[in-house]
């Protein structure tokens, strides 16, 4: 059975990992490559680098960060933040990204999704949606959560899928950094509306929150940042917890069979 993925997000500014609450009030959390190395050992399934400022000056720094992280891991690596053009995406891929995450640029020009899907395949195109509940609808925000749009998260996820997105990275602005739990209602609404994987983001605080988003939230993957960065919880312990709850996860350890650690080693031949 396909495992539920645990994804570590590195919010990077000026080459350093930072983390805020409700998209504001950033504090520093360390070196991206060192964190990636630790998460890899602990059994993380994927890493996302989000360039939270992504100014023009930050572009070169971003390529260096991508290359440094890619050097540490043989795992899927997604890069987002400030990917505005095909050229930006190409630079990220060139530096070692397997996927790029589009947000504001995709809303401004949805054809960018199709362009990149044709060039790199849908599996390389993630559409990030930042949303918060507003008068009973899941309103889509852009510009790092600062500008409201007229779009509804469910409709936009459907359109992004039709245009060639391979995954949706759905962040609840209300829950981001609050550790009060993922927005399961929002996640389920989007996940049920599309047939591509949905990554839930925003609000991870306890192991129970992950179990909730994989069951009632219908998430295919869950992303977290601060609870891992500051050593509050290890990825390994989280996966052990989920495994106990019968939620399929990839347990850390080289070539070991989940649920069957004593399975015989494949017979050696001469």
């Amino acid at each position: 059975m396909l495992s539920k993925r645990i994804i570590a997000c590195l919010d990077v500014r000026d080459g350093r990992v930072v983390k805020g609450i409700n998209f504001e009030g950033l504090r520093e959390a360390g070196d991206p490559a060192l964190l990636a190395r630790r998460y890899n050992v602990e059994g993380i399934d994927e890493i996302v680098i989000l360039d939270v400022t992504a100014t023009l000056e930050a572009r070169q720094a971003r390529s260096q960060t991508i290359a440094a992280v890619a050097h540490e891991i043989f795992l899927p690596l997604c890069v987002g933040g400030g990917i505005r053009t095909e050229g930006d995406a190409a630079a990220a891929v060139e530096a070692g990204a397997d996927k790029v995450s589009l947000n504001t640029a995709a809303l401004l020009d949805p054809s960018l999704i199709t362009t990149l899907a044709r060039r790199y395949g849908s599996q390389a195109v993630v559409v990030a949606i930042d949303a918060r509940w507003q008068d009973g609808r899941a309103a889509v925000y852009v510009r790092s959560g600062q500008a409201e749009t007229a779009r509804d998260a469910v409709d936009w996820a459907r359109e992004a899928t039709e245009r060639g997105a391979g995954e949706i990275l759905l962040t609840s602005i209300d829950r981001d950094g609050t550790k009060s739990g993922f927005d399961c209602a929002l996640t389920a609404a989007v996940s049920d509306a599309v047939n591509i994987p949905v990554i839930a983001s925003g609000g991870a605080g306890t192991f129970e929150h992950f179990a909730e988003v994989f069951t009632t939230g219908h998430a295919d993957a869950a992303l977290a940042a601060s609870i891992f960065h500051f050593n509050e919880h290890s990825v390994e312990a989280l996966k052990g917890f989920l495994h106990e709850r019968n939620i399929p996860v990839r347990l850390p350890g080289h070539g070991t069979a989940p649920g069957a650690p004593d399975a015989p080693v494949h017979p050696q031949r001469d």
């Binding site: 396909l2 495992s3 993925r5 399934d45 391979g166 591509i196 994987p197 993957a221 990839r250």
Partner: peptide, 8 residues
């Protein structure tokens, strides 16, 4: 869900 994305 298709594409089949992730660890199996």
């Amino acid at each position: 869900k298709v594409p089949h994305v992730g660890w199996n």
